[in-house]
Design a protein around this nucleic acid. Structure first.
Lengths: 254, 254
DNA sequence: GAGGGCATTATTGTAGACAATAATATAGGT
DNA sequence: ACCTATATTATTGTCTACAATAATGCCCTC
């Protein structure tokens, strides 16, 4: 939410490699992992549905998995709680949130409201550079979809909406979108009724072109339709059983 | 933002007494102060303008002032950073944020957008109990204003907007409003050009009555006018010099 | 006298040990 | 056999000491 966030490229928020060992150094030499990186790794694991709602994130377990101190894990958990992805119960621990059906509707309602405004502002004012960024992003999404790279698909489809907010230029809106997308990921992870992750690149492409033409009315309609589409793919009855294999869930998917 | 927040009464977020020693117990007996309480105390100090932007919040200093361990202070600082009130620079420390003029405009823009929607929804659906709560809140504001109780005025004037969001019933909106109000407090603390704190109770009362009548158009107009009024009282040129007397700033104002 | 490098100091960051708490298993009584 | 009280265990919460880092002041050189 603070300005420093927006200054960084989108990819920083969704890094793929986290515990990486450079080829030059010995295997024994380990790269320190930051709090933010722990947050993002858990974020991704939740979004990819490897970490199920209700699972307890035990501090010591996480500490040993990431090979950091418990203190840093604690910080990361506090941050995740603020993002609405985990719930911390005092003296009990941190658990992956189990968003209710009402929570889901709430999030989608706010998204409709906020993204409508985002698209509106974007139609009023946008540069060629903005459109280039958007189109290149959609192209990346297409590629990821074709190659069936799940991790990338998740990162990029959320990233599209984040990119829209970033281009608008409001730090606060950007932060809000970030929150909303994190929650949406959790919600789709819990309730989605098919194998598609979030939203497809085609609908994104249409929105971009509407923005390019400055057709505010059409862009808003497309965005609303797009969000309704995502919401409609949810099955709001099924409740899934959580598994507790943390290590497997946090492992690399590739 | 999580649901448990909304369940609590508003006052929990703005407690007056923090380090309190009950009359029955010995003075030596000290009541443990929680992380949340540290957050709120700093929050209030910033809102009351006793803690100026740019001031460094040194961990050890805070720890000794509140008589808690540094670990707990650290947690509080992380939380405050999430609220956008302080900036943490690694290996340097935590500083009270210095919102730029652009930040200020950004926050007010989003507030106009969000609160417009809140009022709109409130006009569509509200119960007698809701209106009673709102009116009684405004009454409290009036009282605080008459008696010139600065701390209460700050708490309550922010609390009014928070209450609106709470009644709407969206957890996410509520969380967003909480963020916005925290930032607004900081902004008005830095840039306001007179001695009035935030917004007066009269404009709030008008808004409540418009909602009571279900006059959505008027309510929205009043809210927009109200926010413009608050914004217009800001002097966006003056830059004030920060002082470093932490202990005095965190002391009770009364 | 000014600028740059070095030692000192202040502050944050980390780790590990300990205390407090809640969940679980166990034994005893009805 | 089942419920309850107690002991055990697992987990979180907290504190203290130490390491790493950045800012400050000093001295030396040009």
């Amino acid at each position: 939410m603070p300005s420093k966030l927006r200054a960084l490229p989108i990819d920083i928020y969704f890094p793929m490699t986290l515990v990486c060992i450079t080829a030059e150094t010995e295997m024994t030499e380990r790269i320190e992992i930051s709090t933010q990186q722990i947050v993002e790794r858990v974020w991704l694991s939740i979004a990819e549905r490897r970490l199920r709602p209700g699972v307890q994130l035990k501090e010591e377990q996480l500490a040993s998995i990431f090979d950091v101190s418990r203190a840093r894990v604690r910080q990361a958990l506090v941050a995740l709680e603020r993002d609405g992805l985990v719930t911390i119960i005092p003296n009990r621990g941190a658990f992956v949130c189990q968003p209710s059906v009402d929570d889901a509707k709430d999030v989608f309602h706010v998204r409709r409201c906020v993204e409508r405004r985002v698209v509106e502002r974007l139609c009023e004012a946008n540069t060629k550079a903005d459109l280039t960024r958007l189109r290149s992003h959609v192209a990346k999404e297409r590629l990821a979809n074709e190659k069936d790279m799940t991790t990338d698909i998740i990162k990029l489809s959320g990233g599209f909406h984040l990119l829209l907010a970033e281009i608008v230029g409001s730090d606060f809106l950007f932060g809000t979108m970030r929150d909303l997308i994190a929650r949406t990921s959790l919600i789709t992870a819990v309730y989605r009724n098919n194998n598609r992750f979030n939203c497809g690149p085609d609908e994104h492409a249409e929105i971009v072109e509407a923005i390019a033409k400055g057709d505010s009315e059409k862009a808003i309609r497309l965005m609303e339709h797009h969000l309704e589409h995502v919401e409609s793919e949810l099955d709001l009855n099924e409740i899934r059983r959580p598994s507790n294999d943390l290590r497997a869930a946090l492992a690399f998917s590739a």
